[in-house]
Design a protein around this nucleic acid. Structure first.
Lengths: 196, 196
DNA sequence: GTCTCTATACCGTCCAGCCGGTATAAATAA
DNA sequence: TTATTTATACCGGCTGGACGGTATAGAGAC
C-alpha cells in the first residue's frame, strides 16, 4: 500500500513543510498556527489538515524531515572520510559549517515541546545514535564528546538568539574545534591567533 | 518608586514564581497559563495579575529571578577562588554541578520565546557578561570558551530532555571538563577512566 | 478612611479540529 | 464510448474551548 499510493501531488507535503518552516522562522514558535501555515503554503486549512491531520503530525513531520536531511548530509560527508579516525565528529563539524544553523527546525522543536514533549523523542534517538557513532571511532572519545557538546551548545544559543558571538567569532570557534580532535580533522588548525 | 514600595507581602511574588516553575516543569511550557499558575499558587487569577500584571511580566520575573540567583551563586563560588587563574570558568562549572539543572527556568525561557523573543534579552546580556568574565581571567580563553559551550550544550539537552547521557556519564563529563582547564580548577581530574 | 491585596465574573480573541461540500481522475461496468 | 462509482485532494465556514486580560467589589491592615 505504501508503494502503490496513487499520489497525484506528493509535493504538497514538502511545500507545506517548507511553508511551516518559513512561518516559524519569521514569526516565532508561538505563531506557528495551522492557519498561518495554510496561508503561507497557499492552501486552505482543510487542505493542510488533509495532508497533516493534526498540528502535532505537522510538527512531527518537520522534525523527521530535518533529522533525515541532517543524517544524509552527515553520512555523505562521513563517507568522504571513510576509514579515517574521528571521521564521525569531523563530519559533524563540517555538516554544521556547511548548513549553517537551521533555525526553522529548531524553533519547530520548541513549538513541539510546548505542544507535546513526546514529539522530541525521534530527536533523542538521533542524538544517541550520533553520539555512539562519534565515540566509536574517536581517538579520544571524551574529547570528541565535549567537542560535540560545544557544537550543540553553540547551536542552541543561536537558536534562542542569545549567543554572545558574532559571525567571525563563531567561525573561529568552529575552526578551533577541529583542532581539539587529535587527528585534526584533516585541516590544520590555522587561525590559532587572537580570539579577542 | 522601585525602592519605596510599601510591599506588605513581598512573599507573594516569590510564591507565585515558585508555583509557575512547578507548573512549567510538571506540565511543559505550553501549559504555562495564568490560570494554572494561579491555581498552583493557591491564588485567584486576580491576585496573580495584581502581582504580575501580564503573562509577559510573569515570565520576565521568572527569568530575572533565575539570572540573579545564578549570578549570586556563581559570584559566591568565584569569591572562594579569588585571585586564582580560571576562577570564572571553574566557578561556573561548580555552580552547575551544585545546582543541577534548573529545568523550570529553562522551560520558562522557551515559553517566553514563544510569547515574545524579546523576553530573552536579559539572558543574552548575562551570557555576554559571563563569557567576558570567563575569557578575562582564563589561561587559555579559547579552551575556556569551548568548555563553557559544552556545559551549556549539556544543559540545553537536558532541558529538552534529549540528552543521551545518564547521570553517571553526565557527572563524568562534568568532572572531565575541569581537566581541560589548564589550571585544573583545583581538583585533579580523577575518574579519567573508561567513559564507555 | 485608605492602601494593599484577593476573589469572582466576565469579555474578546485566537485557534485546533471538524464537517459538508467540490473537483478531478482513475476504475468499473454497460 | 458513455455512465456510474470510488478514491484522492482540497476548500472554507463553523464551533467549542482555552486563555489573556479587565472590571468590580470586598477583606484586612494601618
Amino acid at each position: 500500500m505504501a508503494g502503490r499510493k496513487r499520489v497525484r501531488n506528493p509535493a504538497s507535503k514538502d511545500m507545506i513543510l517548507a511553508a511551516a518552516e518559513r512561518v516559524v522562522t519569521q514569526q516565532g514558535p508561538g505563531k506557528l498556527t495551522l492557519d498561518a501555515v495554510a496561508r503561507e503554503a497557499g492552501l486552505s486549512k482543510g487542505g493542510l489538515l488533509y495532508n497533516f491531520p493534526s498540528k502535532q503530525t505537522l510538527i512531527q513531520g518537520m522534525i523527521l524531515d530535518h533529522v533525515e536531511r541532517h543524517r544524509s548530509r552527515y553520512e555523505e560527508l562521513r563517507g568522504a572520510r571513510a576509514g579515517e579516525p574521528d571521521s564521525a565528529i569531523c563530519a559533524l563539524i563540517e555538516a554544521r559549517k556547511a548548513a549553517g544553523i537551521e533555525r526553522g527546525v529548531g524553533l519547530a522543536m520548541l513549538a513541539g515541546l510546548a505542544e507535546d514533549p513526546e514529539l522530541l523523542s525521534p530527536l533523542r534517538a538521533e542524538m544517541r545514535k550520533v553520539l555512539d557513532e562519534i565515540r566509536e571511532n574517536a581517538t579520544d572519545p571524551m574529547v570528541a564528546t565535549i567537542v560535540w557538546l560545544a557544537i550543540d551548545g553553540l547551536e542552541f544559543m543561536e537558536l534562542l538568539d542569545i549567543s554572545p558571538f558574532d559571525d567571525k567569532q563563531r567561525e573561529n570557534i568552529e575552526s578551533q574545534l577541529t583542532g581539539f580532535i587529535e587527528s585534526g580533522c584533516g585541516a590544520a588548525s590555522e587561525a590559532k591567533g587572537d580570539f579577542k
